[in-house]
Structures are given as C-alpha cells and as structure tokens.
Amino acid sequence: MVEHSVVFSFFLIFTGAAVLASVALYTRQPLLVAYIVLGAALGPYGWALVSDTSLLADISHIGIIFLLFLLGLDMQPSHLLHMLKKATLVAIVSSLLFMATGYGVGRLFGFTQTEALIIGAALMFSSTIIGIKLLPTTVLHHRHTGELVVGLLLLQDVVAILVLLLLYSGPGGDTGVMDFVKAVAALPLLTLGAVIFVRYVLLRLLQTFDRFHEYIFLVAIGWCLGMAELALAVGLSAEMGAFVAGVTLATSPISLYIASSLKPLRDFFLVLFFFSIGASFNLSLIELILLPSLLLTALVLVIKPVAFRFLLQRISESNKLAWEIGFRLGQTSEFSLLIAYLATSMSLIGQEASHVIQATTILTFLLSSYLVIFNFPSPIAVSDRLRRD
C-alpha cells in the first residue's frame, strides 16, 4: 500500500468532497452521503488512496468537539437544567428498550451472549453529530424542540460513558468501581470550576481585549479544547467538556460572535469525520454481516421514532413534536463505533460482530439523514421550504 502525505490526503478528501457534493446537490441528496461514500471509495478497503484513516479520525474528532462547544453557546443554563430533569426518564427507558432490541437480534443470529450485549449497548445511543448537525442553529436551538433533543443526547452521553467504563473494567481492562464514582462526581465539579473560571477570569480577559478579534478567536478555541482535555482527564468525554465550556459562556454577549466565527472551522473537521466513517469500513465482510445489519437498521429506524414518540407523549409533549424528535434521534451513534472498536481491541467481540455494529451505524446515519432532511427543517434540507440555517 502506497503511503501518501497528509497534504495529499487532504487534497483528495476536499477536492473529492467538492465534486461529490456538487453531484449530491444536483440530485437532491444529503451532503453527508457524499462524504461517507467518498471515504469508502478512497479508503483502504476501496481504492486505498487514503490509507492513514486513524490519523484522520483523530483529527476529525475535533469537529465533534467544536460542534458541542457551539451548541453549548446557544443554550441558556436555566433552560438546559429544566430540560435535563424532564428528559431523564425518557432517556433511561428508551436506552433499556433499544439495548433489549439489539441483544435479541444478536442472539437470533448466533452471536455469543457477550457479543449480543455489546450489540445491544451500541444501539442505545443516538448520534450527537447527526442530531445536532441537522438542527437549524438559528431556529430550533432557542425552542423547545432543540432543548429536548439536546437534553436527551446529553443524558445518553452520560450513559455512554458508563458503558465505556464497563468495557474498560471487563477482561483485560483495569478500571474499577472508583472510576464510576469519579465519573459521577466529575461533571458537577467540572461545571462549577468552569463557571468560576469564566466569571472571574475569562470574561474579564475578553471584555478587556474585545477589540482584538484574533485574540477572542484564540481564547475561544483554547477554552473549548482545554475543557475537552480536562473532561477526559477526570473520566468524562471530550464532548461533554466542550459542551460545558460553551454553556458557561452562553450568558455573555460575546458568545454570539464566537459562535459565528467558529462555524467554518467546525464544518472543516466534520467533513473529515464523515469521510473517516466511510473509510474505516471493511467492504469484504458485507456478505457475512448483511442480514443482521439490515435487520438492526430497519428496527432502529422504526423502533426509535415510535419509542421516543410514545415516551415523550407520556411527559405531555405534543404528538407532532414527539414524532419530530423521534425521527431526529432515529439512528445509532458515533459512540456505537467507539464501543465496537474498544470491544474488539479487548477481544470481547469478534470482527463479525464489530462490523455488524459499524454497518448498522453507517446505514442508520445515512437513512436517518434522508428522513430528516426530506421532512423537517434543517440546514442541509434539499427543499427551500425546509432549509433553515
């Protein structure tokens, strides 16, 4: 396999993405599809023109971190706390239902009990990046729909961290009970520390030097990535740290300028993220995993919207709103890919089970995106009537 420079890989990715995006727009397809297809074509299991996909995946993770930071900048803390309290029961019950579905399908196709449990765990979560990428930033984030979506995704993020800790504490892992205690205690302490730092240090610096736009840009990036790294250090996810960084700045008027200046940077890294998803999939295993992957995909696309619709109606949400949130969360998650990778590296599951999770994640990403952009407001909707930035 020929090794190419990072610059050449970037050339292939962004030039190819520009060409395929043009085709996608002319044929009224979502841009996410173009990026994933390009990754599959150029990656090591396609034409192998881009071989170092692990490096690209690491780089692209920055896009998710920025996405959560910008989301936090749009959320008022008082509204967020209210929504988290309201959505807790929905998140717990739905997660258990989705896990049972994945476990049942896994056992049906002859996977071991451990593999079936991990397949079920991978189905519990909805994609933060899909759910938020398809939310109009100037419309829904300040409305009830966006708050509910965000609340549910954050609660799922907490559950995902506990699942990852369980994987680490399994055979070959070295995580113990204290890590659970640390993770549970870390979030409120991290948030409190961030609030104090923003109030007495960060905002004063920004107000003193607000004439220098470059300085504001650099401080915002440093604050976002610094909180992401601090969250990782205390046992949380980088995404949660970035979100806390954004929320603690949300009450300041400077948050609007920061949000607008970071959007192009976010989109740059998100292209890499979707490319790396397509590039990491081993196309030679399709025949072995086709049936379980298709069945899981169909169940996710049907059961998740129905479950969220039923549960949200139980907490007095309207039928229309409940359906919309259900479809926006009707896919598996980037956490599913991480669970598959970790479980495989620790020999808890085999390659076949791992690729069932990966294939289901990719398929639900694609098909869920179609359902949303053709039926609900989003920044990349193909219809002018539904396009909201």
Rank of each mutant, 00 (worst) to 15 (best):
S237T: 10
E214I: 08
F209P: 01
Y215K: 06
T208S: 11
M227T: 03
E229Y: 15
G241M: 07
F269A: 04
A250G: 00
G246L: 09
A233M: 12
L206I: 14
L262D: 05
G246C: 07
F281G: 06
Y215G: 06
L232S: 10
R266H: 08
A245F: 02
F274R: 02
M227C: 09
R204G: 09
A242W: 04
W223Y: 14
L225R: 01
G226W: 07
V198D: 00
L272V: 01
T208P: 03
A231C: 05
E229H: 13
A231H: 02
S237C: 04
A242C: 11
L202N: 01
I221T: 11
T251L: 11
A238N: 00
Q207A: 12
L265A: 09
L249M: 14
G241P: 01
V234Q: 05
A245D: 04
F269K: 05
T248A: 07
S261M: 13
F212A: 15
F209N: 03
T248C: 07
L265N: 02
F275W: 07
L265E: 01
V198E: 03
I196C: 13
A231W: 02
Q207F: 10
T251W: 09
G246R: 04
V247N: 10
L232I: 07
F273Y: 10
W223I: 08
A228N: 05
S276V: 06
A259N: 04
